[in-house]
Design a protein around this nucleic acid. Structure first.
Length: 201
DNA sequence: CATGGGATTGACT
DNA sequence: GTCAATCCCATGC
């Protein structure tokens, strides 16, 4: 079932973990969400922190919309706008486990291995054919769909940690990963990073 | 108007 | 491990 605006009209740090296990679909390509991050206007890593601008308008709009923006000049990153209209907050979709349309994904990504098709926020938009023109589109009306977990699907075991690739508000534990998925963008950093980190000088 | 810096990825050492 | 690609936009003069 399609997730309704009410689902997103809540604290973003509650919406983000619940999106793990849900299904993201665009046309014939779909995947199960295995990694998300929450962003909110009150913390400086969020684009909405700067206030209402040309870039951030969608973030302050109605919950249940898609916020798609360009990252590093080259990639499109997909977010689900959350919290009430007027509040700038969204959940970044960071990784999927491919479910349908693998042939489309392989063609778009020019890769074969399923683990590499959607294991990153820029990768999954490429694999699903999601681009900047879908910024502001409705996740209820499409063409991007966000669906509740299939009936009977077990609730995923979550690993919670710090968000990736940001320099500010790094301490917030707002990254949520399916602990049992091999499709996350980076094998959950908390434990993993500690273990692989070189000993301090 | 000029500048700096990304919510990243892929190629390479 | 390092690094370039690539461009929009927020910021500052």
């Amino acid at each position: 079932m399609t997730l309704q605006p009410e689902f997103f009209d809540r604290p973003v740090e509650e919406v983000a973990p619940e999106l793990v296990g849900c299904v993201l679909r665009h046309g014939d390509a779909a995947g199960r969400i295995v990694e998300t991050e929450a962003y909110h206007e009150r913390e400086p890593a969020c684009h909405a922190y700067a206030g209402l601008t040309a870039r951030t308008g969608v973030l302050f709009g109605r919950p249940g919309a898609a916020y798609v923006y360009r990252s590093y000049g080259t990639h499109a990153l997909l977010n689900a706008v959350s919290e009430s209209e007027g509040v700038g907050a969204a959940v970044l979709i960071r990784a999927l486990e491919p479910l349908d349309g693998l042939h489309l994904m392989r063609k778009r990504r020019r890769l074969e291995r399923p683990d590499d098709l959607c294991s990153g926020p820029g990768k999954l938009t490429q694999a699903l054919g999601i681009w900047l023109d879908l910024n502001g589109s409705s996740l209820q009306e499409g063409p991007i769909e966000l669906l509740a977990p299939p009936a009977g699907a077990p609730r995923p075991r979550l690993v919670v940690g710090e968000r990736i690739g940001i320099n500010r508000a790094v301490e917030l534990p707002w990254r949520f990963c399916d602990a049992d998925s091999r499709h996350v963008s980076r094998p959950w950093p908390p434990a993993m990073r500690m273990r692989s980190r070189r000993a301090a000088a």
